[in-house]
Nucleic acid binder design. Sequence first.
RNA 1: GCUACCGUAGCUCAGUGGUAGAGCACAUCCUUGGUAAGGAUGAGGCCAUGGGUUCAAUCCCCAUCGGUAGCUCCA
Length: 607
Amino acid sequence: MKAAEKTQEYKNSHIYRLRHSLAHIMAQAVLQIRPDAKLGFGPPVDNGFYYDFDFGDSPISDSDFKDIEKRMKKIVKQKQVFEASQKSLDETLQLLEETNQEYKIEYAKELVETGKAEGGQLGFYVNGPFIDMCEGPHLEDTGKVPKACFKLDKIAGSYWRGDEKRPMLTRIYALAFENVDELKDYIQRRELAKKREHRKLGAELDLFVIDDEVGVGLPMWLPNGTIIRDELEKWAHEVEFKAGYKRVSTPCITRSNLYHRSGHLPYYTEGMFPPMVIDDHDEYYLRPMNCPHHHKLYMSRPRSYRDLPIRLAEYGDVYRYEKHGSLAGILRVRAMSMNDAHIYCEQDQVKEEFTKVMQMYRFYYDHLRLGNFRVRLSLHDKDSEKFVDSEEEWVESENIVREVLRENNIDFDEEVGEAAFYGPKVDIQLSNVMGREETVSTCQLDFVMPERFDLEYTDRNGESQRPFILHRAPLSTHERMIAFLIELYGGAFPTWMSPVQVLIIPVNETVHEYAKQIESRLFDNMLRVETDLSGDTFNKKIRRGVTRKIPNIWIIGNNEMEEQAITWRRYCVKDQVKLNIDKACANLIRWRDERIMDNFDDIVIDE
RNA sequence: GCUACCGUAGCUCAGUGGUAGAGCACAUCCUUGGUAAGGAUGAGGCCAUGGGUUCAAUCCCCAUCGGUAGCUCCA
């Protein structure tokens, strides 16, 4: 089904009409207590609807919710009929000016000017005393709203037309579903989701902390979290080694000259920390990206076509001045470690290299069981100054990337204005437990930097050529990737990533010695193992091991000692199994070495 | 950065215009236990910070700093 048809079908659906009608009902109720409020947009959204208002000098707060809900219920009872009508622009403006609806006036004019209003006619819907410019559709009357199917949710600010230079409106979000049960079910699911939120689990599992005195958005990784980082990084080193990447290492602080050359100044200034001035005249910046340094390494000697592709990889620390209000745990930070690499290649190698990168992210995602993502082709916006001005090259490189996606049978959405300033991107988008979508992995085609850095290689004919550059980060940044993994796994990591891989719990003191023997055997195999020799009760030890989400608990008692065995209790599996110690060790080591995802219950112990 | 809400023990939270409580966690002792909380005792708080109102502020007001959600922005 095409996107347009899908939208039309959605707009005609009952849930859409219900939510849209409720938006009008809410607006009517809000106008009862704030008659001078100006209306913005009020569309249905995923779990309900919202409406934007300009309250001027008399703001509203969530303490008004009860009152508004009561008024909405009254409107529902009145069974106000929704009546559609059409008006010309003149009629529309006259009507809207009477009520001072400046935002609607702007939108009405725009709809007519851009030809989006069919025949220059604007749609209106009236229900009771409320009239709104709106294309519909709606329910027949307000009485068709099911009982208790909605609930006002939260208040948030929102710029008019999404433009931060324009007025900030007040947005009231509401939840709305087909019936009470669905509403309750959603609220319950949201409560449950909060429990696997990465910030909550990150604190519970001692993965990372963010300290005011260190700074907002500057997370510090505790030993447990650092293990997860190290394991991902080790993995990336192996995968990249096999794919022909070479590792490099470059500094996090750099003279401003580099960023004048790259164009980060001015294109990316807003995303950078302000400069440090040295010796009164010299400016240094914290780096927001690793690419310029890698380009310098590329230039460190003359390159031949025989050398290409050159793939320079670095888990590089970068610093970005993210707006304070957009920071969120480790999902959105100001200091991050990126699974970065830059691939320098000839023009006719671009497709193959791009394809290989796409295969690499696919490999990672399949392995980690990160299934629920969206692929976005991020294009430039020719009307925006955020992008390097070179229309022809933009279109050309966007075509290359689009073709790669098609040839690889990858479903994707195109979005204008989401590109990097130097080229189009393929972004892998994931949503967290609260429904917030972020870019995780990215692969970008860069046609700008070769020119700016005067990058060259000598081709078969001895002539100087510009290489193409791919920027890629399939494992994202540690911060963002681990935030998503924490939530996806609910904090229960597979053995290979787990801070503690095995917890040994002896049943009584007589087996302590045997427990210690097993512990040192695992330790000698480089496994992260702990033995609980505390004075707590057996039940308490089990409970503690489980709440720490340790993937493997090995129970040791007199029976096990006699048989040279252990009883294996896994975090994700109900049944436990008694196993000979040699076999148990072999299983564990294999899971670790092959990075088996034993935090899922389809992985079984090889007996 | 903007809008709204929030800030009490390590964590989850009660609470009051007359300078504070619970559970878990922590410490010590007792308990020697076969699959998710054994018992007792104890320690722990400038009630985010700075101003103001008041005889008196953790509580009311203002500012600052942090947090949450959304907008903008982005890996």
